[in-house]
Design a protein around this nucleic acid. Structure first.
Length: 201
DNA sequence: ATCAAGATTACCT
DNA sequence: GGTAATCTTGATA
């Protein structure tokens, strides 16, 4: 049985896709590792260059953001603050510069790998496990995602998402986004209510 | 050619 | 709460 999310999931409007991404399972099948790394998406933010000044695509296509203008179903990875990478799921139709930032996840498998990469140890306290993936750059550090994964096709076998039932609307919290200076009024951050793995209240 | 900003994190008081 | 770390990108201050 194959419950991998298909192209049609990603081709939808960015806000619909963002809300629906909550609860889905992010999987990295890195053939260099003995285990598949996986985690449940618990917090996301939507970015839409048409109307959103905080989106990297607001001023049009550039070398960095061009993957966001492709059809949904690719990874967009960017480097920021001289240190960190952040991962996005490209959504929507071709030539629409939209994507969903992955802000926090709940670890499922590959805990020892996450522990080694995040804190250089395999003995894990509950507090450290909560800290594995509760921020966009932490996710990339734990999954070892950087430039080389930019543009990855999520309908192939290396990195993909698994279906999970949609989180009911009354369990989804909608707020303004974090860490941006423009378009701060847009309520485009979504997270699973009462989940302890989100980045910030 | 130059420069300021940046979808963050970890560590300090 | 405050801020250093660190460097690519995209606009041209």
């Amino acid at each position: 049985m194959n419950n991998k999310l298909k192209k049609d999931f990603y081709k939808r409007n960015v806000l619909l896709a963002a809300k629906d991404l909550l609860g889905k399972i992010f999987v990295y099948n890195d053939l260099n590792l003995e285990v598949k790394l996986s985690a449940k998406i618990v917090e996301v933010e939507a970015y839409d260059g048409e109307i959103d000044q905080a989106a990297h695509t607001f001023n049009g296509k550039t070398e960095r953001n061009k993957i966001m203008f492709e059809e949904g179903g690719f990874l967009y990875i960017y480097f920021t603050y001289g240190i960190h990478f952040c991962a996005n799921i490209v959504t929507g139709k071709k030539d629409h510069g939209t994507a969903v930032l992955l802000r926090a996840m709940e670890p499922i498998s590959g805990l020892e790998v996450f522990g080694k990469r995040r804190f250089n140890k395999k003995e894990l306290s509950e507090k450290e496990i909560i800290n594995f993936l509760n921020g966009p750059a932490k996710i990339c550090q734990a999954f070892n995602i950087d430039r080389k994964q930019n543009g990855t096709d999520l309908t192939k076998g290396e990195i993909y998402l698994l279906y999970a039932p949609k989180i009911p609307t009354n369990k989804v919290v909608k707020t303004t986004r974090i860490g941006i200076k423009k378009s701060t009024e847009l309520p485009w951050r979504f997270y699973i209510k009462d989940n302890q793995y989100i980045s910030k209240k």
